[in-house]
């Protein structure tokens, strides 16, 4: 935890891509343990970049990112070690195609956390069971449906026992009938008290599971609040317009 009781804190984070593209324009955000922060906003608003700066997959051009008492933007920080505490799930799954479901999970357990073969296997199987895919342990990603692949990806991230989970539009690449199985896993995770930051277009999920809703536009947090209240009566004109389009 950070000194202010938050798990993650972004302080005045700016991000430029090159000289012209100004994607994040001063983001301040603190996420406390067990919060489920849902980030919504129009495409190109900087949602994904914001999420990816949290584990420094995108390095902020300016500003600080603090995670669990460590300044990730400090050059002396061991980023690889810090990243093991932050799970990230991608829109395109990004499973390793040359590894089985089990192998996808054990790879980092063995090589990053240094678990023994047996420990890694045990933990991976347990994690697959939790996402309901125990029987797919030996299947390669190419043999799994999109929803199953995404659940393996979630299991892979969870197996590292992270304190924070980041979800980057994880259902956007899925066929409609496969969305629910992934959202169910995420909802259960939230119920177990996992701290989560979720970029999504699933407004139902935002309303039911989110503890806080963040509306981002043009690289700035336009409005934030309790999801049901914000959906019912958005306080800002731009939020109102966006919600009118997606609901």
């Amino acid at each position: 935890m950070n000194s202010d009781g938050s798990l993650v804190r972004l302080e005045d984070v700016h991000k430029w891509f090159g000289d012209d593209l100004y994607v994040l324009r001063g983001i301040d955000l603190a996420v406390t343990p067990s919060e489920v922060v849902v980030v919504i906003g129009p495409s190109g608003s900087g949602k994904s970049t914001l999420l990816r700066t949290i584990n420094l997959l995108e390095e902020p051009t300016e500003g600080r990112v603090l995670f669990d008492g460590v300044d990730l933007t400090d050059i002396r920080t061991d980023l690889n070690a810090a990243r093991t505490g932050i799970g990230l799930v991608f829109q395109q799954f990004n499973l390793f195609p040359h590894k089985t479901a089990l192998g996808n999970i054990t790879l980092a357990l063995r090589n990053v956390l240094g678990l023994s073969r047996e420990e890694a296997r045990e933990r991976a199987v347990e994690q697959l069971r939790e996402v309901g895919l125990e029987e797919k342990a030996d299947a390669y990603p190419g043999q799994l449906s999109g929803g199953q692949q995404q659940r393996v990806a979630i299991a892979r991230a969870l197996a590292m026992r992270p304190k924070l989970m980041l979800f980057d539009e994880v259902t956007s690449a899925l066929d409609p009938e496969l969305v629910k199985e992934v959202l169910d896993v995420m909802q259960r995770l939230a119920g177990e008290g996992m701290t989560m930051v979720v970029v999504t277009h699933e407004m139902g999920f935002a309303r039911e599971v989110g503890t806080r809703l963040l509306f981002i536009d043009h690289g700035q947090i336009v409005e934030e609040g309790e999801p049901r209240e914000m959906f019912a009566s958005p306080g800002h004109e731009r939020t109102r317009q966006f919600l009118a389009q997606v609901l």
């Binding site: 584990n55 997959l57 070690a81 990243r83 990230l88 990004n94 390793f96 990053v112």
Partner: peptide, 14 residues
Amino acid sequence: ERGQFEAARSLGMS
């Protein structure tokens, strides 16, 4: 694909 590298790095790999 770039995502392969990003997935590996986000799992803490160097």
